[in-house]
Write a protein that binds this DNA or RNA. Sequence first.
DNA 1: AAATTTATCTGACTTAAGTCAGATAAAATG
DNA 2: CATTTTATCTGACTTAAGTCAGATAAATTT
Lengths: 291, 291
Amino acid sequence: MSFDPVSRFRRFSRAVTSEVGALDTSFLGRGRPLGAARVLNAIGHGRSDVAEIRDYLALDSGLMSRLLRGLEEEDLIATAPHPGDARRRVARLTPAGQQEFQAYEDLSNARAEALLARHPKPEALLAAMDLVASALGRDRLALREMDPRGPEARHCLSEYYAELARRFERGFDVSLSRDPEASDMIRPRGVFLVGLSDGMPLGCVGLKGSGGEVAEIKRLWVSPAARGLGLARQLMEAAEQAARALSIQVLRLDTNSALPEALQLYRRSGWTEIERFNDDPYPDLFFEKRL
Amino acid sequence: MSFDPVSRFRRFSRAVTSEVGALDTSFLGRGRPLGAARVLNAIGHGRSDVAEIRDYLALDSGLMSRLLRGLEEEDLIATAPHPGDARRRVARLTPAGQQEFQAYEDLSNARAEALLARHPKPEALLAAMDLVASALGRDRLALREMDPRGPEARHCLSEYYAELARRFERGFDVSLSRDPEASDMIRPRGVFLVGLSDGMPLGCVGLKGSGGEVAEIKRLWVSPAARGLGLARQLMEAAEQAARALSIQVLRLDTNSALPEALQLYRRSGWTEIERFNDDPYPDLFFEKRL
DNA sequence: AAATTTATCTGACTTAAGTCAGATAAAATG
DNA sequence: CATTTTATCTGACTTAAGTCAGATAAATTT
């Protein structure tokens, strides 16, 4: 019926290989071997721990050591013993290194912008890229507790509201809903968890507590790019675990029948339907789970 | 509103870089440097001309020469002077080389299959990959005249019919439509053009002639992955050029108001609406263009 | 406190990759 | 037919990348 999946995949591989190769060669334009450029970029992106960088770039310890020394001689980085463990070393950029790192960033950004600019539907291209990146980087998905007012959380929440607005027949207006206080989703009352893949937020869940034995699950959302990968289940499990750690004994949530994937998840993971427990105009289904 | 486009693009780059790197290292498992493996693969994929391979892989002529000699010593390839131009050389796989090439193919295919298998929606992932590959490989898009009965053409046509079935309220049944004879779309009566990006058919158009001065444009289709890139216009221009070369003076086509993108293209490129000229049940709009 | 493990460094390699200036021979051009 | 251009090859390099066996010093374990 359609062209063979494996050849479609491999056509994709060829296309990105040449793109990746082109970026690599553009990096060589700054008169530094690729290995050194990669280490500099890893440090610039916030990886300070030498062992972590070595692991991330899959370098031999000897090679890593020499690359670091080379960057030090160029006065682009400075290394120091790890404050807590003097066997380890940490690296950071010097002002000159910061500048050089920025030059590499500019190269990457310019490539990205050029490619996006020449595409007729950048948003569709980006959505496709998100999906592919999530599929390839599935194992790099990590859950992190974050401030619900931070940029990652705000991104998730605004996508969540936009999705509700699309899904609900009557639309969705946050101001009519019972928007939880951020402080109710921060320890010690609750938590806010974000699923991150390589820095990009792909899903979230909030645990809204009041200090008592009952807490509510709020704002469960998974990006379209990551659906089907089991992120929602992971988020819910992590939220339950956090609830137990906060000595919460009963979890509740409200939801809407226009969100069948979520309903299925709740029913399959031990939640039972209960009577309406609030007067929020949007939900029409209510669940409870005893921990 | 959403996470910055450039960082989404760059997250994608990081994800595919590590995937590409992993494939490269898996290639090293066969005890041959990557450069030699790449040359062997290029030959296996049908690139016989040495200059073409050198250009494709961006290799220095000296390096290329040594890699070829190495593969010859391993008895994986045989080279010979180009039959038409004795300065050039052509390379082909020996039976041993064929076998070795197949081993590399198996590695690539296994990776592709594994990745697709573990994804919950392989068709969505593939569609995203097609879109990205088309965006990145835009400049590699080439039009080729092909047999309308060949596999590429058949792929395009079946996608075309499937799309009509989705778009038309009453569906679409090829057998009710006036399906052109393949021989009417082959020289000297007509042509069939396919837009290929790195081997994958992304669009097509047929010129159906009868040997006379009037011919019809049929089966204009562009894959969703390639829409907006101007492929339809390219195909139509190439079809008109082919028509002129066949001394055709008037082009006609029938279409349907459920296909607004096509209508817009026709109106913008010099076609004028005319009276119905056939009794096919599907079209409701008819156009003509004098060359 | 001694033994072991861990993180990094050093030196002495090997191999791959890439560069460059001719050499050679077969077209193509004037 | 002489000259120029083109495609490939050869040899003599340089540089980058990767490997491996210790050395060193700071945790960690016993």
